[in-house]
Amino acid sequence: MRTFFYCIGQGLANTRRNILFSIASVATVSACIFLFCMFFSIIANVRSIVYTAETTVGITVFFDESADDAAKESVKQAIMDRGGVKKIVYTSAEEAWEEFKTEYFGEDAEELSEAYADDNPLADSDSYEIFLNDIEDQEAMAEYIAGLPGVRQVNYANTVVSVLKSLNKVVSILSIVIIGVLVAVSVFLISNTISVAAAFRKRENEIMRLIGATDFMIRAPFVVEGLLIGLLGALIPLAAVYYIYGRVMEYFTAWLSGLGTGFELMGLVPLDIIFPYLAGCGLLFGAGIGFIVSFFTIRKHLRV
């Protein structure tokens, strides 16, 4: 326990003595973790929208006029047999007309649609709505269904899917590249800071070695310094992200509510859900990079 506190104290003293290098390292780790949090938030929100789309955007299948119940049933069976289907909802022509009336005529639906009382304009518009486990299968599934006998038309949200897919890919690649560069810069700067600290304490370490200090006792203060840099480098951007995300969330929610109904599903992932992941990853990343880089740097410098 005494040794533990001694090493912590020496680690703090190292950071203080080496303050400019320590600040530079903390700033780089902070930038790295801040960008990581930003990209993480973007990816999480894109995924959330994709998930919403997966659960709300389906493939709609209309049948040939000549298709009887048995033909429709065999279409359903063929779709189920292909796999990857979460659920199939059958909407009769009457139900489709009722939905249409409510959606377009609103409260005056009965009055305005009286002329069509005995003549359903959506006759032969019964359909299956198919929801898939993975939205990326939509295109292939739509092509497959279009080729089935008895199918007249297939509608699906082709544009939504492709935009979401490409957005997700671009954000992922961009985040990997930028974070990769920043990780390399962080590693270089932390390693440099520890090297300077080791050079600064060269005499002290030599004396410690000859007095009979263990490798642990000599190296631990430098690892503590690396850990401190990593943890401080994580805490600063996490506090910033907490504030910024909260403000963006408020602004975005107000903007969406101004657009009217139907846009609620596009809302951001709530802060209390996303932040624990950001905090966990950020702290782990900061502490991890600080520990690993300082451990290996000091191993190289202090061959006992």
Binding site: T3, I211, M217
Partner: peptide, 11 residues
């Protein structure tokens, strides 16, 4: 005292 501290001697 440094010589004692680095070998973990008690206060």
């Amino acid at each position: 005292a440094f010589a004692q501290r680095v070998i973990g001697a008690s206060p």
